Amino acid sequence: MEWTVITVLVALVGLLATVGAPVIKLNSNLTKLTVLLDTLKNDMQEQKKSAKESHRRLWEHNDEQDGRIENHEKRITLLEQK
Rank of each mutant, 00 (worst) to 15 (best):
L37H: 08
D38C: 00
L12V: 15
K32Q: 07
G14R: 02
K41C: 07
N42H: 07
K41G: 12
R56K: 08
H72N: 11
G67N: 04
R57D: 12
L40W: 04
D43G: 02
E80K: 14
A17H: 03
S50L: 13
D66K: 06
K52M: 05
N62S: 14
I24E: 06
T77E: 11
R75K: 15
W3Y: 07
A17Q: 03
L33I: 09
I6C: 03
N29V: 06
E64I: 03
T7P: 01
S28F: 08
N29G: 12
S28R: 15
N42T: 14
T18E: 05
K41N: 14
L15N: 00
E60I: 01
G14I: 05
S50P: 01
G20H: 00
I69F: 08
A51L: 15
N27E: 05
N42G: 05
N27Y: 09
V5K: 13
L16R: 06
T31F: 10
G67T: 00
N62Y: 15
K25Y: 04
E73G: 05
T4H: 08
D63E: 12
R68L: 15
Q47A: 13
I76N: 07
L37F: 12
L16T: 07
N42P: 01
D38S: 04
E2I: 10
V8C: 06
I69P: 00
L78K: 14
K25M: 06
D66N: 10
E70C: 04
L26N: 07
N27G: 07
I76K: 13
L58D: 04
T34E: 12
D38L: 04
M1C: 07
W3H: 07
